[in-house]
Amino acid sequence: MIPDFNIGLGTVIILLFALFVSAIRILREYERGVIFMLGRFWKVKGPGLIFVIPGLQQMVRVDLRVVTMDVPSQDVISRDNVSVKVNAVLYFRVVDPERAIIQVENYFDATSQLAQTTLRAVLGKHELDEMLAEREKLNLDVQQILDAQTDAWGIKVTNVEIKHIDLNETMIRAIARQAEAERERRAKVIHAEGEKQAAETLMQAAEMLSRQPAAMQLRYLQTLTQVAGDKTSTLVFPVPVDIVNMLMSKAGGTPPAGGSS
């Protein structure tokens, strides 16, 4: 009888030890365990060493690190009826493990599907130029909408980045023609502004020179000096009527009727 008793006691001890070992769980610093007692939520445990009673309790591991999710390319029609393909990247993390497990079946898939529909809805309200020039504003709009809708699931959307906007070849050529026309318009405006400023400066210079006749003569002589510096065999220059009249008046002659020689 004693050997049978020892065998039975040894079996019980082995079973208890196996039960104890199977109840041990080790959770990392970034993990939490959602514990259910007989199917009902009990508490959230972790990190570190925890015990889960086999048969009575079940544990679901939840990762609290930031998840990087690639949003697949979406077909979007902008407000000005331009068809584009847009893809993005989504960053989120679990802030409430209890709601992430209880309130939604699969929070990862649910967040992915919600991100796709939200991306199409938000970009569809903007024109193509806004999509290309105001990405930061669009990123913020999508992030705020997703964060508000996933709050009930215990999810925090930290950031949304639109990665790429694909256009068809026809639209790319149209945008290139538009950019070229815009550059030509700016060039013409700059040229016109230069002509306007030059005309104003010349007008001011003419007014200053008209106040002193000697200034006009000095300017004329300076021009002759610049022309004479060129290595040419023939030199042709006009003689202003004002200078001829002045010279004739000093010589006591009759000034010519008009024109220049």
Rank of each mutant, 00 (worst) to 15 (best):
residue 169 E to I: 01
residue 186 R to L: 07
residue 240 P to L: 05
residue 230 D to L: 14
residue 26 I to F: 08
residue 178 Q to G: 13
residue 58 Q to N: 05
residue 124 G to H: 05
residue 211 R to E: 12
residue 254 T to D: 05
residue 172 I to W: 07
residue 204 Q to S: 04
residue 227 V to G: 07
residue 23 A to S: 14
residue 60 V to D: 01
residue 163 K to Y: 10
residue 260 S to V: 01
residue 90 L to S: 14
residue 220 Y to A: 03
residue 103 Q to A: 15
residue 52 V to G: 11
residue 137 K to M: 11
residue 130 E to L: 07
residue 186 R to D: 04
residue 249 S to A: 06
residue 148 A to K: 12
residue 170 T to L: 13
residue 8 G to Y: 08
residue 176 A to Q: 06
residue 187 A to K: 04
residue 25 R to D: 10
residue 70 D to C: 04
residue 256 P to T: 09
residue 171 M to H: 08
residue 152 A to F: 07
residue 34 V to T: 08
residue 80 D to C: 09
residue 39 G to V: 03
residue 76 V to S: 00
residue 158 T to Y: 11
residue 63 D to A: 02
residue 37 M to G: 08
residue 100 A to S: 14
residue 60 V to H: 00
residue 192 A to F: 08
residue 240 P to K: 10
residue 145 I to H: 11
residue 186 R to S: 00
residue 153 W to I: 00
residue 40 R to D: 12
residue 213 P to T: 10
residue 78 S to D: 15
residue 65 R to V: 11
residue 168 N to Q: 11
residue 52 V to K: 02
residue 32 R to N: 10
residue 232 T to P: 12
residue 122 V to I: 10
residue 197 Q to P: 05
residue 31 E to C: 07
residue 20 F to D: 10
residue 3 P to R: 14
residue 141 D to N: 06
residue 152 A to E: 11
residue 84 V to C: 09
residue 119 L to W: 00
residue 109 D to G: 15
residue 196 K to F: 08
residue 102 I to W: 03
residue 132 L to W: 08
residue 156 K to L: 04
residue 98 E to I: 03
residue 45 K to V: 13
residue 207 E to A: 12
residue 229 G to I: 13
residue 139 N to Y: 00
residue 85 K to R: 11
residue 85 K to G: 11
residue 222 Q to M: 13
residue 129 D to A: 13
residue 83 S to V: 02
residue 80 D to K: 05
residue 104 V to D: 14
residue 158 T to W: 03
residue 87 N to M: 03
residue 167 L to T: 14
residue 185 R to K: 06
residue 7 I to D: 07
residue 222 Q to T: 15
residue 206 A to L: 14
residue 204 Q to Y: 06
residue 140 L to K: 09
residue 245 N to C: 03
residue 16 L to F: 08
residue 55 G to V: 10
residue 196 K to C: 04
residue 134 E to Y: 05
residue 175 I to Y: 13
residue 75 D to H: 01
residue 106 N to P: 04
residue 92 F to H: 05
residue 16 L to V: 05
residue 175 I to N: 08
residue 218 L to K: 10
residue 110 A to N: 15
residue 107 Y to W: 02
residue 160 V to C: 04
residue 223 T to E: 01
residue 5 F to P: 15
residue 100 A to K: 06
residue 106 N to Q: 03
residue 161 E to M: 01
residue 98 E to T: 05
residue 253 G to S: 08
residue 146 L to H: 04
residue 31 E to V: 02
residue 115 A to H: 07
residue 57 Q to L: 06
residue 141 D to T: 01
residue 18 A to V: 12
residue 182 E to K: 02
residue 6 N to P: 04
residue 42 W to L: 03
residue 89 V to R: 01
residue 143 Q to H: 06
residue 79 R to S: 11
residue 203 M to F: 13
residue 194 G to D: 12
residue 75 D to E: 13
residue 239 V to F: 12
residue 247 L to E: 09
residue 12 V to N: 01
residue 250 K to W: 11
residue 139 N to Q: 01
residue 146 L to K: 03
